[in-house]
């Protein structure tokens, strides 16, 4: 464990999230290591997505949400007063449950949508970024001849990979994935899982999934949440073969839900 904490990329300290009167996340403290894949699992409504979304302050959009505690990104609290969520989010990208490309844009424009925000970029520079990002999500060969067609013409799986390409085009350090495969067919799911494995060389990845096999396949560490609380976190192999807590074991073996 000490090894993990040493190169901690993200640390949650006593994180609490309220929606109105609903206490959705309770006193969560956990750490995600640099260049690792951390999976968050748990039954529906256990607060796993809420935890994930607090790591890039997506709750800022929800008026009723209240976040307390601290989330350290490279040792700095992203919830501090002077801290700017806009700059922070460029370091912490996010991929959502349902593919959400911008429907009014071409494939090309979707990839550079985030990149273009920071001022005028040269065409050649953007061409390079589009190719690189699409290569990385292995979409390049499928779409290189039709970069300027509307993004909605892609299949669901391709759209999701496009969204990942859009996320990595801004060179984040962390990628948050909120059940990225739940809307995809098995083949697309497999492709995205392979992709996650490749991406972890460069990025720190946190993935929420309700699919335990997926967590077991892609992650290095796994955290189990239940009713807004972190029940157990540890090495994925250990969690799935020899969990410490009874609740974890019951969930893993499918004895409750």
């Amino acid at each position: 464990m000490s090894e993990v904490t040493m190169d901690a990329k993200i640390t949650l300290e006593q994180l609490n999230v309220h929606f109105g009167t609903n206490h959705a996340v309770k006193d969560v403290t956990m750490t995600m290591a640099t260049n690792s894949v951390s999976a968050i699992i748990g039954p529906s409504g256990c607060g796993k997505s809420t935890v994930l979304r607090s790591i890039n302050r997506m709750h800022d959009l929800t008026p009723s949400a209240r976040v307390s505690g601290a989330i350290l990104l490279d040792g700095e609290n992203i919830y501090c007063k002077e801290c700017d969520p806009v700059t922070m989010r460029r370091r912490v990208g996010m991929v959502f449950q349902k593919p959400n490309p911008f429907p009014a844009m071409s494939i090309y424009d979707n990839v550079v949508a985030g990149y273009k925000l920071n001022g005028r970029a040269r065409r050649s520079e953007m061409d390079g970024i589009v190719e690189q990002s699409l290569q990385r999500v292995s979409l390049w060969d499928e779409v290189k001849d039709r970069l300027h067609v509307n993004a909605m013409q892609l299949s669901g799986g391709q759209q999701q990979r496009l969204c990942i390409a859009r996320t990595i085009a801004v060179c984040p350090e962390v990628i948050l994935m909120d059940e990225p495969c739940s809307a995809l067919d098995p083949i697309s799911t497999l492709k995205v899982e392979e992709l996650i494995d490749e991406l972890k060389e460069k990025y720190t990845i946190v993935i929420v999934t309700h699919n335990m096999q997926q967590a077991a396949r892609v992650s290095d560490t796994t955290a189990f949440f239940y009713l807004g609380e972190l029940i157990e976190m540890g090495d994925t192999k250990k969690i799935f073969t020899n969990p410490e807590k009874k609740q974890t074991e019951d969930y893993i073996t499918g004895r409750f839900g």
Partner: peptide, 12 residues
């Protein structure tokens, strides 16, 4: 909202 989230998550 997924459209808004997509943009916000890109740092918009």
């Amino acid at each position: 909202d997924s459209q808004r989230e997509a943009a916000i998550a890109l740092g918009a």
